[in-house]
Design a protein around this nucleic acid. Structure first.
Lengths: 173, 173
DNA sequence: GCGAGATTGTTACGGCCATAACAATCGTCG
DNA sequence: CGACGATTGTTATGGCCGTAACAATCTCGC
């Protein structure tokens, strides 16, 4: 009985209980909206914690650091302000992350010829090797997480998430 | 042209570019796995930041604090260890969160009769009022986020997320 | 009974992140 | 050309979170 496994998980048991309780409440309450938001945030949190503890921390790094290096791997040397935009992070968070990565010799800063304010962060040789290795492991782990869905279901999930992202509320930062 | 709106968003433009780049790479790379994990984590991050900045911070609180109080609202007085289990948080994080909430008079700790180690955290009258008000606002905001999907699509999304959660990899913490 | 092992809550420490303020630089308009 | 506004990167400060270590307490088997 595979179902039993999930029912015994305290987090899923709580989610089911909360949904039932909200179903008995008047109008502002919305069991469906709650369940959707809860499962989205909860799954994301578990995946983040899992990638961090299984892949990146054992190698001495962090998931945010990897995600930044991965972008540099695909994009080449990039300015902190651009990285902040596509990562939905503040510029100061990018500065701090680059400081950490530079301290470990994975990333280096170079001046930008046309703009004396700007700096471009780029991978070092060590950094590129690090990204390639961690990327292979992270891909395997991501595949494990979603292996319970077939290819069509995974495509549907990706599509629904992408559509919600594309229709983000107007005044959302 | 509504499509143009999303294409101009740097984060979605990057995601599409990355997926294409990975499609041209050999075996360990998996464009579908990347796209799924990226959109899941990115959407979750945006929703968290949005709820935090639009609803909870203006009221002087935080999203993690609200999520804890919401659980106490449904469950009644609860031990930190139970809260940590269902929230996938460490016990020390729960302790710190309760400290903050207690300092603001929203939560209080009481001894547990049968176990002299244990403590139960419960909402104060102020805390319960705070939860009810923030809950109504948060529900509205969640509805806005997912309004672009119809009811059936939202149900599908919730179902897919729940199934991934239920099938969490064996060695995931 | 009682002692080994598990559980509970807490604290110390370090990492990531946001906001706000700042200096330096760029772009543009009069 | 010169000044105002916008942009860039950084720093300081504070919040949340995890790991590790700790004392107190409970549980269970001998």
């Amino acid at each position: 009985m595979r179902k039993t496994l999930s029912v015994d998980r305290p987090d899923l048991r709580y989610a089911a209980y909360a949904r039932d309780r909200l179903a008995g409440m008047p109008s502002p309450a919305d069991p469906e909206a709650f369940a959707l938001a809860y499962h989205l945030l909860h799954l994301s949190y578990l995946v983040v914690a899992d990638l961090e503890s299984h892949i990146h921390r054992p190698r001495g790094w962090t998931l945010p650091g990897f995600r930044l290096m991965f972008k540099l791997w695909l994009l080449g040397p990039t300015q902190p302000a651009r990285l902040a935009e596509i990562s939905a992070m503040s510029r100061s968070a990018v500065t701090n992350a680059i400081n950490t990565l530079e301290r470990e010799g994975l990333v280096e800063r170079r001046p930008v010829p046309d703009d004396r304010r700007a700096v471009a962060a780029g991978l070092t040789a060590r950094g590129e090797k690090a990204v390639r290795e961690a990327f292979a492991e992270q891909t395997r782990r991501e595949q494990q997480w979603f292996a319970t869905l077939d290819a069509e279901e995974r495509a549907t999930l990706t599509d629904l998430l992408t559509r919600v992202l594309a229709a983000r509320p107007e005044d959302a930062d």
